[in-house]
Design a binder for these strands. Sequence first.
DNA 1: TATTGTTATACTCTATAACTATA
DNA 2: TATAGTTATAGAGTATAACAATA
Lengths: 171, 171
Amino acid sequence: MVTRSSKPAAKSVRPRQTPEKRGGTAAQAPLPQFDLLQDSLGYAIKRAQVRIYDMVFAALGADSISPARVTALSIIATRPGINQSALAESLGINRASVVKVIDTLGAHGFVERRAIPGDRRSYALVVTDAGKSALQDIGERLERSEAAIAAKLTKAERAQLMALLAKVAVS
Amino acid sequence: MVTRSSKPAAKSVRPRQTPEKRGGTAAQAPLPQFDLLQDSLGYAIKRAQVRIYDMVFAALGADSISPARVTALSIIATRPGINQSALAESLGINRASVVKVIDTLGAHGFVERRAIPGDRRSYALVVTDAGKSALQDIGERLERSEAAIAAKLTKAERAQLMALLAKVAVS
DNA sequence: TATTGTTATACTCTATAACTATA
DNA sequence: TATAGTTATAGAGTATAACAATA
């Protein structure tokens, strides 16, 4: 049984490159300043996200599938019959990376690759009963977990936060 | 000095789909449902975070240090003389992992490890003039970048979003 | 003994490129 | 030619454990 190891921590993939490109022009100017850590909406969101991520891990339990896999499972549940490439698109990752995701979900017995009569190049991904059951359980755990956060916000505030975040997330 | 050019790419959770088949012939219970993808505050935050992360990458440019390193650099700038262990604590990562972070920032000439007279076990980390200059430039880039998001929100909405996120982020 | 930085090692998540089998 | 899935390989970011130097 594949399980999540200890600490996951945040991700961040970035191509590295050579240093020095921004030369040392006039060094110290009176900074009109925008304090990254304090004033950036990006950092504010990041902090909230890190906080929630911790809670999600605690809620899922040590032997659960990872949050990323829960997302994949949720998408397949919502779009039964989706193929791996479309799932990759939906997850915003490369289709090659989806292979292991499905292998893992398959090893857990949560998802199946089903043959498609008309096209033998791809599979129709479907969530099994065990997968639906797991998703139900996970949903309940996360819902209870979010209740801890909701306790800090009124219903109206939560709704407004969701609305504002949706505006920000618009691509 | 690793120099892998190409796509930034990162992301993690990026659900989005059409509202279709849902209450089907489930062998499970009549789900009172909490739709993870739709109703979870965690996912809403994650989506916003992914969106902003994309913008941050674009704003920083291909030859910049990573967002995580920008954070480290900002912290050192805010707390000059901090040592690696305290920085690790502040970043929420293991102190062993900080070694490479500082090595990288050092290779860029943005940070220096300075000897501390009283304690030869640790270093006082300080941002160099080049580092301050880079931070200034990055701050301006990110500020302009956030303006694109701010355009979707009124000043009051932005302030409220920041306030609500701060409530959520409270540990 | 406790702390700090370091090294060696390993794991997760993801990307690219190339390959196979279809279509 | 184009598409879907796969494999091999690589890189970023992080963790653990063990270690030396220093306190």
